[in-house]
Design a protein around this nucleic acid. Sequence first.
DNA 1: ATGATAACTGATCCTGAGTATCAAAACGGG
DNA 2: CCCGTTTTGATACTCAGGATCAGTTATCAT
Lengths: 156, 156
Amino acid sequence: MSPRRQNRAAAEELTSRLSARGRRPTAQRLLVLEALRRSRRTVTAADLFEQLRADHPLIGRATVFRSLDSLVDAGLAQRFERAGHVSAYAACSTEHHHHLVCTGCDTTVEIDEASIARLAGELSQRHGFTVHHGTLDFYGLCASCSDRASGAQRRA
Amino acid sequence: MSPRRQNRAAAEELTSRLSARGRRPTAQRLLVLEALRRSRRTVTAADLFEQLRADHPLIGRATVFRSLDSLVDAGLAQRFERAGHVSAYAACSTEHHHHLVCTGCDTTVEIDEASIARLAGELSQRHGFTVHHGTLDFYGLCASCSDRASGAQRRA
DNA sequence: ATGATAACTGATCCTGAGTATCAAAACGGG
DNA sequence: CCCGTTTTGATACTCAGGATCAGTTATCAT
């Protein structure tokens, strides 16, 4: 697929996903999304800012942060908490995606949703990944918090 | 078990684990470890600092951060990257532990290492946890980074 | 014990990610 | 084409965590 066609598709998806939430598909958000799609690795907001400013000197730092928030909110990107208290981002095409993230080079590999059960045991062979035990944790809501927050979205 | 006996055991483990690395079991580190063990939730360095300063006004902020690093390094505590680019900590007794961390109240539940495979599918029922898809990611080293880093410990 | 050496502490300053604010600009519906 | 809403960019700010350094404390050898 040509780069131009890719941009076209990206723009269309951006438009539909954002406008469904009453938000606008701006040039800056498209730039951020395209940069994300171009990378096979997770990138930080600072990375993106520097990278985008090369071709678009007018873009603002805060705008990159906000665009990333918008994209995550629209389901077009995913946030990763990289060690060192920095958020990194990756574009993601469909709804829920699980990833392998290399803590060395930040390369991300998408994993299909099915068979999470068999996943952990096979990770090292299938992708040559050495899963680091320390970060093999699951985050979510316990029963009480789940009840308390039912209906009320929390984002903090 | 009485509180005193618990302190005793904590102090002994602290001593052996730390001195094996040429580090010293100081009063401050013991304080931090005890505070961690007292909590069934992950706590931030700021939480601990405030909490400890109530009884020990002389303790320094940086010391709390450094003590936590030491404890993690010694395998007595575990670091969690809480959303919002903050590290949270929990005491952990044995080597590798997996946890359920509630993003609402930070309660942590230890999970036995075996049967990671069956885990994900059963999480919601067993503990009443709602696992948040967005953070169900695995971190580790890809094959190339694994080769490159073989032998050389990386901690960054 | 005691003195030398190395690790630790606490105070202070510094960095860097991310947010809040706000006036100016860009949209989009009517 | 106009008006209300959203977004942008610039700036100032917050706050977690790290660096530095002089002073202190623990460990080890004598």
